[in-house]
Computed example of a mutant assay.
Amino acid sequence: MSHTAHIPSHRKPRRSASKTALRAGVAGGVLSTIAVAGAAGPAQAEPVAQTIEMPTITAGLSTSVAASAQATQAVALDLETQATEDAAAATAAKTAKKAKAEAVRKAEARKKAEAAAEAKAQEAAERASRSAERTTLSASTGSSDSASSSSSSSSSATGSAASVVAFAQSQVGDAYVSGGTGPNSWDCSGLVQAAFRTVGVDLPRVSQSQSTAGTQVSLDNLQPGDILYWGGAGSAYHVGIYVGGGQFVGAQNSSTGVVQKSLDYDPPSGAVRVL
Rank of each mutant, 00 (worst) to 15 (best):
G179A: 01
Y237F: 12
L219G: 11
V172F: 00
Q82G: 10
G250M: 10
A121K: 13
F167S: 02
M54W: 10
A88I: 04
S16M: 13
S218I: 11
A76E: 14
V243F: 07
A76D: 13
A74P: 08
A87N: 05
L137V: 14
Q193I: 06
A101P: 10
T58S: 07
A117H: 03
D202C: 03
G29H: 02
A109Y: 05
G60K: 03
D174T: 10
F248P: 06
G240L: 09
V274R: 04
T215L: 03
A103E: 04
V26M: 14
A71N: 05
D220N: 13
A132Y: 06
A166E: 01
G142H: 04
S16H: 10
Q44L: 06
A157N: 11
P8H: 06
F196A: 13
A251G: 10
G29T: 10
A117F: 01
A107F: 07
A99R: 07
A21I: 15
I52T: 11
A121G: 09
A119F: 04
A27H: 08
R23T: 15
N253K: 01
A125W: 00
A119E: 05
D226N: 08
S151F: 05
E126P: 00
A21P: 04
V75P: 00
T136L: 10
D78P: 07
P268H: 11
T56C: 08
D220M: 06
I7P: 05
G180R: 00
E114W: 03
P13Y: 12
P267E: 15
Q70E: 14
G182E: 00
G173E: 09
T58R: 08
T58M: 11
T56P: 10
A21R: 07
L222P: 08
H238E: 01
A115T: 13
D174R: 11
C188R: 00
S9V: 15
V75W: 02
Q252C: 06
T141M: 05
F196W: 11
T95A: 09
V164N: 06
D174N: 12
K112W: 05
K94R: 13
Q169W: 05
K106A: 07
T256G: 06
S64A: 14
Q247R: 08
G190M: 01
A157D: 07
S32V: 15
E46V: 14
S154D: 10
A92W: 00
R130H: 09
V165P: 06
P42T: 15
A251K: 00
T33W: 00
T63N: 08
R197E: 14
V201K: 12
A99V: 14
L228W: 03
G60P: 03
V65A: 07
I52R: 12
T72I: 11
I34S: 11
L191K: 00
I7W: 07
A87C: 05
I227M: 05
D266L: 12
A161V: 12
T20G: 11
L77I: 09
